[in-house]
Every structure is written in C-alpha cells, then in structure tokens.
Simulated assay, not measured.
Amino acid sequence: MMVKAVRVMLEPNNVQQTKMFQYAGAARFAYNWALAKEKDNYEKGGKFISDSELRKEFTRLRNSAEYAWLQNVSNNVTKQAIKDACIAYKNFFKSLQKHPRFKSKKKSTPKFYQDNIKIQFSDTHVKFEGFSSSRKANKQKLNWVRLAEHGRIPTDAKYMNPRISFDGLNWWISVCVEFPDCKKNLNNDGIGIDLGIKDLAICSDGNTYKNINKSQVVKKLEKCRRRLQRRVSRKYEKNKKGVSYCKTKNVIKNEKRLLKVNHRLTNIRKNYLNQTTSEIVNRKPRFICIEDLNVSGMMKNRHLSKAVQNQGFFEFRKQLEYKCNNNGIQLIVADRFYPSSKLCSCCGNIKKDLKLSDRIYKCECGNVINRDFQASLNLKAYGEKFAS
C-alpha cells in the first residue's frame, strides 16, 4: 500500500463558507493561545507544557462564559491547532525550524483540521463535523459540502490528516489516502530529458514540449496583470493619507481581480507541467534521466531570472519524482557538472568554447545536431551507466 495526498476544491454555499471562516478563526485563536502559553512559561523558567495539559486547560476556557463562542466550533479543530503549536515549538528547540510566529488575521492563510474518523466522503460531497447539530434533514444538509471534482477521493478508504484551507478565492480540502501499489510493465528503453527556456523539455526519443509562457493566452494574461498592478498602485497613491495608505472599495475590488489573474496564470503553468510529466511517465520507460540544474544560480542572471522562474524547473522535477516512484520507474539525476550540452554524442569530444547563443552543435567529426537534443541523448547515455 502507498499513501497519496489528494487535494480537491470545495464549492460551499454562503452559510457553509461563513462556518469555514469561523472554524479557521477558532483554529488561529487556539494556536496563538497555546503559543503564548508556551512562550510565557519558557520566559518564567518553566518546563515544556505538553499539548494534553494545554488542551485540558483550553476545554475549561471553552466552557467559560467569556469564550462561549467557541462552543459553535468543533472541539477537534481547536485541539489539533494546539497540538500543531506544541509541535512547532518543540521543533524549534530541536533546530528543525525557525521560532514559530503568531498567526495574523490579515496575513496568515485561513485553515483548519477535521477529525479523520468523523469525516465522510461521497462521490460528490464531503461531510464536516459540527456545521449543524440539528437532526432535521434539511439542516443536516448543511454538513455536506460539494466537491468540485467528483469521484476523486475514494469513499471506503482510511483518511489521514484532513486539512481545509482558503487561498484567497476558493476553499480546498487535502487528505492523505491509502492506495494499492500499481506495478506496470516497463519498456527496456530509457529517456533523457534536457530542460531549457526556449522549450520546456527536449526528450531523447524525439518528443519536444514547448514553452507555455510563449503562448498567446499566457501573454495576454501577463499583460492584463501588469495593467491591474499599475491600476492598484495608482489607487493607493491617490488615496494616500500622509504616510499611511487608505484601502478603498475600488482598491479591494481591483486586488481581487488581480488575485484571480495570478491564480489563472499559476493554474495554466501547473496544469501544463502535470500534463507534460504524465505524458512522459505514461510512455513507461525503464528509467528517466534529468540534469541537476543550479536554479538558484540561474535566478541571479537578471536577463533570464523571470523566464527561469516561469518555467518551474523545481516543480517539474518534483512531479517527475513522485510519478516515477508511483509507477516503479527509476529516476536518475545527472551530476551538476556533467557536460551534457558540450559533449559530442558521436565521438565524445568536449567543445569547451560552446556559447549559450550557439543553438546548433557542430563537431570536428562532422556531427551537426541541435544542442538541446544532443544534451538529451547524452543524458540518456549517462542514465544507461547508472540504471539498475
């Protein structure tokens, strides 16, 4: 059995959306409360407070008249938020992460946890705990939130760590589900992949995947985004009061439009990467060999940094890794200093004076070939040496 994370968009109605924001607010309050308790206790010289002790104290706080509003929120939401705060605080002292910060209402992502035992899935809906306590049939419908994708999450599986989050436009649910191992019959041949800016990926089997950022759809959206950014900037400058900026309704409206355009661009790029990697993996090669790109170094080049960022090389590699792992394909990462483009695929000669502007590789042995396609052939040959 293998564990996969599944993320699906939700389509709540207005009442359900209000309850979700209420749950996220309660989770943020419980997290900040637990973090403040731990911090205050540490400054006084006390030992680490366990999450079980804090949860017992929070239950007494929840039953008080001052915090009666917490009774409208499922107990499991706040309990898990306290546990998350304790884990984050403990990891800081283990040098696994930075010091946990208090969550801000304006800046932090609204999200909360649902109990993995009480959550239920159907083909079209997911049932949340505590949205409605009434036993009437029409009130019970409030607990069932529609899923944007039907049949994506199995209904008779074991669920782990269900989390609900808001990205500024839509609510999403992510849950880990156990799936059976799928072993596929693989081909004897391998594939070498050279990533670039002119084209996203050039494969050694002759397939080339174009750069989606050069398409008219993406260019129009980029232009629309630039215009909206300038419009928002002008609105802020126009409504400036002394040192501070005044956020008017027009600013909020334009910022929401800008957020939609940003999400649209991100979705187009991620979808294209998913389609590309899936198409490569579905050819069932014995191994896939890619190069270890120094993306952080490439980002320092101010002429290429934007193009490199938009290509999403890290996302491409991350998707290949988990898809190869799921399908039993060996993924080989070539050494960063392997001269895949400078090495002649025929005679093995290395052309040290090869420039980035030289798109055609010409060797003394008579080999004339596209440099990116030759790099993919060399990567395939590299993979043959290390393939098991």
Rank of each mutant, 00 (worst) to 15 (best):
I164D: 05
K19W: 08
N254C: 10
H125E: 13
L293E: 01
I164N: 07
L356C: 04
R227G: 13
L221Y: 14
R225A: 11
L343V: 01
N213M: 04
T155P: 03
A27T: 07
Q319M: 13
I290Y: 04
C289Y: 03
S244A: 10
F386A: 11
T266R: 15
K39T: 13
L169V: 09
K223C: 12
V368G: 06
T208G: 10
D123Y: 05
R264P: 03
V368W: 04
Y322K: 02
F179D: 04
K103D: 10
D115W: 04
I280H: 01
A24G: 06
R226Y: 10
A65P: 00
K139F: 06
Q80H: 10
I193M: 07
V218F: 15
Q311R: 08
E384K: 08
L304T: 07
C324T: 07
V217T: 14
A148Q: 01
K39Y: 05
I119Y: 09
Y113H: 14
S174E: 12
F93V: 04
A375R: 00
Q229S: 14
S296W: 02
E178M: 00
K300H: 03
D84K: 05
Y89Q: 09
K107S: 12
S64Y: 09
V308F: 07
N32H: 08
K355F: 06
G366L: 11
E43K: 14
S134T: 12
F131G: 02
F21S: 11
L343C: 00
V217H: 13
E149Y: 07
K56L: 03
S204C: 06
K103L: 14
N76W: 04
D205R: 01
T276N: 06
